[in-house]
C-alpha cells in the first residue's frame, strides 16, 4: 500500500493508528514466538542428535545380528521363522501443540516381545534368531522415537522459518508503510487545516 494511495481523512488516520498498534503488538508476539520456537528447536535438536546416534548404533547391531543368524541358521531358517511373527507392532499417531505448532506424538505397542510372545516355537529355533529378533525390535523402537523427534524438528523448523518471515515482513514492510501512510495523512490534514484557515481569512477580508 503506497502512502499516496490512502485517503487523507481523519477516520483513515484513526484506522491506521489502530492498525499500527495491532501490527506492533503482533510483531512483538511473533518475535517472542520465534525466540521460543528457536529455544524449543535447540532442545529437540540435542535430543535428535542422541536419538540418531542411538539409531545408527541399533541399526549396526541389528545388521550384525541378522548377519550372524543368516550365516549360522541360514537365510531359509530365518525367513521361515519370520513367517511365524505374531502381534505386528501397532503404532498410534496423536498430536501435541508446541507454541501453536502441531507436532506428532507416536505411541507404539507390541514392539518389544518376550521369547514366548514372538510366535515361533522355542525348541525348533536358536538363540541366533532370538538375538536377531531382539536387535530388530530395539531398532524398530528407536525408529519410532526418531520418527517422532525428527518430524517434530522439521515442523518446528518450518514454523520458525514462517514466523521469521512474518516478523521481518511486519518489521521492515508493513509497519514502516503504515507509519509512512500515517505521516502522510497527518501532514495532509495539517495542510488542509492551514488551507481552510487561509480561505476563511480571505473571505473575512
Amino acid at each position: 500500500m503506497g502512502a499516496k494511495d490512502v485517503k487523507p481523512t481523519r477516520s483513515e488516520l484513526i484506522e491506521l493508528k489502530k492498525k499500527i498498534k495491532l501490527s506492533q503488538s503482533g510483531h512483538k508476539l511473533l518475535k517472542m514466538k520465534r525466540d521460543g520456537l528457536i529455544l524449543e528447536f535447540f532442545d529437540i535438536l540435542n535430543k535428535a542428535k542422541d536419538v540418531r546416534a542411538e539409531l545408527d548404533k541399533a541399526y549396526e547391531v541389528a545388521n550384525k545380528k541378522i548377519g550372524i543368524a543368516n550365516a549360522v541358521d541360514g537365510i531359509i531358517t530365518v525367513k521361515s521363522t519370520a513367517f511365524a511373527l505374531q502381534n505386528i507392532p501397532q503404532i498410534e499417531l496423536e498430536s501435541r501443540n508446541i507454541m501453536g505448532v502441531v507436532v506428532p506424538k507416536i505411541e507404539s505397542s507390541s514392539v518389544r516381545k518376550s521369547i514366548e510372545e514372538r510366535g515361533y516355537g522355542i525348541l525348533g529355533t536358536s538363540s541366533y534368531t532370538d538375538e536377531a529378533a531382539d536387535a530388530y525390535e530395539k531398532l524398530v523402537e528407536k525408529i519410532i522415537v526418531a520418527a517422532e523427534i525428527e518430524t517434530t524438528m522439521k515442523k518446528l523448523l518450518d514454523d520458525i522459518e514462517k514466523t521469521k518471515r512474518r516478523v521481518n515482513a511486519l518489521e521492515f514492510k508493513v509497519i514502516p508503510e503504515l507509519q509512512e501512510s500515517m505521516n502522510f495523512i497527518s501532514l495532509r490534514l495539517e495542510e488542509m487545516e492551514r488551507e481552510n484557515t487561509f480561505r476563511l481569512k480571505k473571505i473575512k477580508g
Binding site: 541378522i66 548377519g67 550372524i68 543368516n70 550365516a71 549360522v72 541360514g74
Partner: peptide, 23 residues
C-alpha cells in the same frame, strides 16, 4: 554345509574374520 554358509554369509554381511571363526 553350516560352516560353508557361515563363511559365505559372514563375508557377504561384512562380519570380521574373528567373528566368522568364532561361529
Amino acid at each position: 554345509v553350516s560352516n560353508l554358509r557361515i563363511i559365505i554369509r559372514g563375508k557377504a554381511v561384512g562380519l570380521s574374520d574373528e567373528e566368522i571363526k568364532n561361529q
